[in-house]
Amino acid sequence: MTASRHDVPAGGGAFALSDLTIGLFLVAQDEHRLALGSDRRHHIPLSADEGWILPGGAAGICEFDDAHSYLTVSFDKHMLDDVGLDTSTAFRPQVGGLEPLLAQLVRLAADRGEDSSSLYRQTMDLALATHLARLLAPHAELCASLDDRRLRKVIAYVQEHLTDDISLDQLASEAAMSRYHFARAFKAATGRSPIQYVIDERLDRARLLFKTTSATVAEVAFRVGYADVSRFGQHFRKRVGITPAQFRSQ
Rank of each mutant, 00 (worst) to 15 (best):
P100S: 01
R92L: 10
F75S: 01
M79D: 07
R107Q: 08
D111G: 00
D115I: 02
S74T: 03
Q94C: 15
E114H: 06
D82Y: 12
L71V: 09
H68D: 11
S69G: 09
F75W: 00
A67Y: 15
D76S: 04
Q104R: 09
G113Q: 04
L98F: 03
G84S: 10
R112L: 12
K77P: 05
V73R: 01
G84C: 10
T89V: 08
T87N: 05
L101M: 10
S69T: 12
E99A: 13
P93A: 06
F75A: 01
D86F: 11
A103T: 03
V73H: 04
H68C: 15
F91W: 13
H78F: 14
Q104D: 10
F91G: 04
T87M: 13
S88W: 04
L101H: 06
M79I: 10
D65K: 04
D82R: 03
A90P: 14
S88T: 13
D111W: 05
G84I: 06
P100V: 03
Q104K: 09
L108K: 02
Q104M: 11
V106K: 03
L102I: 07
R92F: 10
Q104N: 09
L108C: 05
S88K: 11
L105K: 10
H78L: 14
D111I: 03
R112N: 12
G96D: 00
F75P: 00
A109V: 07
R112E: 13
M79G: 01
S116Q: 11
P100L: 01
A90D: 13
V95N: 03
H78I: 11
G113M: 04
T72Y: 06
L105G: 12
A90T: 10
S116T: 07
D66C: 12
D81R: 09
F75M: 05
S116K: 03
R92V: 06
D65P: 05
R92H: 08
S69C: 15
V83D: 00
S88G: 14
D115R: 00
T87I: 12
V73P: 01
E114V: 06
H68A: 15
D86L: 13
A90H: 13
L98S: 08
L102D: 09
F91A: 10
L85V: 14
D76F: 00
D111F: 07
L105Q: 09
T89M: 11
L98V: 14
T72M: 07
M79W: 06
H68Q: 15
D81E: 15
L101E: 11
T87P: 03
R107C: 04
A110K: 03
S88E: 14
K77M: 08
R107K: 09
L105I: 09
T72E: 06
K77D: 10
H78M: 15
L85E: 04
R92K: 08
A67M: 11
M79A: 13
R107D: 00
S116L: 11
A103M: 12
E99V: 10
D111E: 05
T89A: 12
S74Y: 03
L102T: 07
M79C: 10
T87Y: 07
G97C: 09
D81S: 15
T89W: 12
